[in-house]
Nucleic acid binder design. Structure first.
Lengths: 137, 137
DNA sequence: CATAAACCCTATAGATTTAGTAGATTAATA
DNA sequence: TATTAATCTACTAAATCTATAGGGTTTATG
């Protein structure tokens, strides 16, 4: 299940991507428009900034803005920052790999092989979808 | 992320599906072979029984056994029982649908439309994979 | 009747999620 | 320069979920 953090993060990014110019938008503006708890959104936007997706400007007239154009931001990046691994099990993760404690042989593990398929398919979608695609719908 | 419950459940089902005859297998046998905590596995097998996947026999020589042949058990059924919804958001779920509180218009929601794609792809895999496929690998 | 097994109920430690509260810091502007 | 509007930081907290553990009950078998 997708966390609210990720869901809200994507919604906020989409909101920013739909802006005509790329001038800073205040958290409160996004919060009201997308029905997201202000302080929760604040922490989400902060992590997006720390991970190079967003820039921010402090003080009056400040806010958050996209650092790249929406078409240059793949969903893989957004998902990995907000949700973490795209895989359903760590043992098939590309960026967050971890061996299973209970499983002696990965290549013989039924779960492993099934989840590899799921990962490949999901990854394919996220790789071929950019923030721009989300903004146009 | 896949819960351990689901992972262990699938492993146990695979173990049962690989049995030559379909005679009852004790929880302890599966627990040892697959490195799964006995009491946790107990509760997992119980829910699989209550959901029509497994049968059980009490007393000496008792245990759990599959109610159908592995090829007749699709992964969709197993996943829904153990993990719940296959969708990443309730608003695109076929079997566990729930409207989002924050979202006024589903068809205009970027998250909704993206997760619909992911669901379709994942569902396709689970529909075309049966327990039998997992047993042969 | 003894034994071995599923069954059933309860509790719980720990982690994660989803926030809320309080204040510090920074920058534009009147 | 004083004010104001904004981000930034840190702490707290409730609620829920996860992954067990323990103990007692029931049922079948030899």
């Amino acid at each position: 299940m997708l966390s609210k953090k990720t869901k809200y993060g994507i919604k906020a990014l989409t909101f920013l991507g739909r802006q005509v110019d790329n001038t800073p938008v205040a958290i409160a503006t996004i919060s009201k428009s997308e029905n997201i708890s202000l302080k929760f959104l604040e922490s989400i936007l902060l992590t997006l900034r720390k991970n190079g997706i967003l820039g921010s400007k402090k003080g009056k007239g400040g806010g958050y803005y996209l650092l790249k154009s929406p078409s240059e931001i793949p969903m893989t990046a957004i998902m990995r920052i907000l949700e973490g691994p795209i895989s359903m099990v760590p043992c098939v993760s590309l960026n967050f790999y971890e061996k299973c404690a209970d499983c002696p042989d990965e290549s013989a593990c039924a779960v492993h092989n099934l989840m590899m398929q799921v990962r490949d398919n999901t990854l394919d979608i996220f790789r071929n979808t950019s923030l721009a695609d989300l903004c146009n719908c």
